[in-house]
Amino acid sequence: MDSVQELEEIRSRVLGEKPGRILISMGTCGLAAGANSTLEASRDELAKRKLTGWDIVQTGCLGLCDREPLLVVEKPGEARVVYYGVNDDRARQIIANHLVNNYIVGEWVLPSDEGTQTS
């Protein structure tokens, strides 16, 4: 690479507009909890519903290894939502409900006070 400009071009290209992204935590903990089948199901469901613009990003561990597999839905301009314990069935339902119908499946959303306790 010859210059910083090249880096800048890549950065702005990657950050460009998209309908949204699904992030699946696929560290060792996620894989052990079955993130691979979550990924497969998500891909399959997106294809089945012809949701072509969506990216599935395989990420590393978010730190909440206890609640894996974790799946994050990002829609531009909307709240980032973290789902926990996402098996393949949940993944399909999240795609149908959240991505397609904008209906957030509250039952599987990580509560905001998750992992906290007042001593």
């Binding site: 709240a79 973290v82 992992g115």
Partner: peptide, 9 residues
């Protein structure tokens, strides 16, 4: 909704 950044964890 429980936004990612609002999750206390």
């Amino acid at each position: 909704v429980q936004e990612f950044d609002d999750i206390l964890f």
